[in-house]
Amino acid sequence: MTDTPDWNAYEAEAAAAAQAAASSDDLEEARVRFLGRKSDIALGLREVRDRETGMLLNGVRTRLEETFDTRAARLADDELDRRLRDEIVDVTLPGDELPLGHLHPITQIRRMVEDAFLGLGYEVRDDREVETVEYNFDKLAFLPTHSARSPRDTFFFDPNHVLRTETSPSQIHIMEEKEPPLYMVSIGRVYRRDAITATRYPIFHQFEGLAVDRGLTLADLKGTLLHVMRALYGPERKVRFRTHYFPFTEPSIEPDVSCGICLGSGCRTCKYSGWIEMGGAGMVDPTVLANVGLDPEEWSGFAFGCGLERTAQLRHDIPDIRALWEGDLRVLRQF
């Protein structure tokens, strides 16, 4: 080496080459030329003998390395951007198909009912489905002539055993098991001898509520059912009572919920009444209380029962109840 290079010019030339590099490869080539093992500055550093020159050259090299690093990062970003721009996918294509199951609508309704009653401080239970005539009818004060006692309406295995026709035997079971106050909802399958149609199926589900405490009134029943109906159908719903007859309640009523389709003005769903029948209810008959050893002057109660299928049909506008029993995935996967 004869001439002492102009290191300022060298640095300027190298920086210009870095800026001029249009790709990482170009930049690498320039780096090798200006900072590589055989570059002027590498050779120059190798031959340095004085402190001053050493500091100068180190300064040049450090600055150039920074310049090249900065440029390299910039080029890498640009190249990544370019590559990603080419990696455009059709975002409207479907994603990976992952398994997703479905709870049956009856289970969903069951949980809604459970949650509504848990919120009201009720316990949840279910009892046996094969019942004795004693628990299904006698202790619930069914008259001997009640039509439900007929094998035309009820599935009998023998004169003493039936498939329970309602969840009401749970009332007796809990009252025999525990002392009041009692607040429970019983949910399960019940059976009636109905021909299979769009609105009737011989097997269906009911929820049965029972409260036994001091000083309960028909107004408490009305408030409770309003809460539950609103939990099931929405906060706008109204509830009214109609007189009715059940063997195990007195007074007995049928609760109606205002029709959600016409909002009460009358339509086909509500048979132009503005109201939809929801089941049966009433104050626990003193005879039933006495049957389980409770003093009707001290204790009072209310009870009610509703069908889950009917609730599901109303909530989801299911025209044919059979759809709930056929296990058809085209149906189940909607819920």
Binding site: E114, F117, L118, G119, L120, G121, Y122, E123, V124, P181, Y183, M184, A211, D213, G215, L216, T217, L218, A219, D220, K222, G223, T224, L226, H227, V239, R240, F241, R242, T243, P251, I253
Partner: peptide, 24 residues
């Protein structure tokens, strides 16, 4: 009497002294 008063029955909730609202 009740069946002639059903429309006037108010909406109330029981006065509770004990609660049972938990799943087993």
């Amino acid at each position: 009497i009740a069946r002639f008063r059903l429309e006037e029955v108010p909406f109330t909730l029981p006065q509770r002294r004990e609660m049972f609202g938990v799943l087993t």
